[in-house]
Computed example of a mutant assay.
Amino acid sequence: MELTVTGTEGNLHVVDFLKPSIGESEAKFYAASDEHTVTTDLPQDALMVTELACLIKGIRGNGLKPEKKWPAMSRKTQLVVDAVRASIERGFEAVEVRN
């Protein structure tokens, strides 16, 4: 899934918005017409599993509290996905993302 966001100060285009292909260790996005590449040592799938394992280990093994950022990040991601769907359902009209 590709994502293009158009704003008053420029455009953002993200290739493979939801999840890069299995095995990829880099993702590309375009701001205006400039290409930017973000690289990682591991593919996104492996990084997600590693992050989850670290969070569980911290809570179970070290008595840490769950990080508070994840509910907010999950909610914001869902707002964007909902806005994309609403735009598609409305014939690709611009949709405002509300918090």
Rank of each mutant, 00 (worst) to 15 (best):
L52W: 02
L52S: 00
L52Y: 02
L52I: 02
A53M: 11
A53T: 09
A53E: 13
C54L: 07
C54E: 15
C54A: 13
L55K: 06
L55H: 12
L55M: 15
I56V: 11
I56S: 02
I56P: 02
I56K: 00
I56W: 00
I56D: 00
K57F: 06
K57W: 02
K57R: 08
K57G: 13
G58I: 03
G58F: 00
I59E: 15
I59P: 08
R60N: 10
R60P: 02
R60L: 12
G61P: 05
G61R: 05
N62Y: 12
N62K: 07
N62I: 03
N62P: 01
N62F: 13
G63S: 06
G63K: 07
G63Y: 03
G63L: 05
L64F: 11
L64D: 15
L64N: 14
K65N: 12
P66D: 07
P66L: 13
P66C: 06
E67R: 12
E67F: 01
E67D: 15
E67T: 08
E67P: 10
E67G: 11
E67H: 07
E67N: 13
K68H: 09
K68M: 09
K68L: 11
K68P: 04
K68F: 01
K69F: 00
K69R: 09
K69N: 06
W70K: 01
W70V: 02
W70I: 07
P71I: 00
P71M: 02
P71Q: 04
A72C: 03
A72L: 09
A72S: 11
A72R: 10
A72M: 12
A72Q: 03
M73C: 04
M73N: 06
M73I: 08
M73S: 00
S74A: 06
S74F: 05
S74P: 03
S74H: 13
S74K: 12
S74N: 09
S74M: 10
R75F: 06
R75K: 15
R75S: 11
R75V: 01
R75Q: 14
K76R: 13
T77D: 13
T77V: 04
Q78T: 07
Q78W: 06
L79T: 15
L79R: 15
L79A: 15
V80I: 13
V80Y: 05
V80F: 05
V80S: 05
V81L: 15
D82E: 14
D82K: 12
A83D: 04
V84W: 03
V84S: 06
R85Y: 02
R85P: 04
R85Q: 09
R85L: 14
A86Q: 15
A86N: 10
A86V: 08
A86F: 03
A86P: 04
S87C: 06
S87Y: 09
S87W: 07
S87E: 05
S87I: 09
I88E: 09
I88Q: 08
E89N: 09
E89S: 12
R90K: 10
G91N: 11
G91I: 13
G91M: 07
G91E: 08
E93M: 02
E93S: 09
E93L: 01
A94Y: 09
V95K: 03
V95E: 14
V95D: 07
E96G: 14
E96N: 14
E96Y: 09
E96L: 12
V97A: 06
V97R: 05
V97G: 03
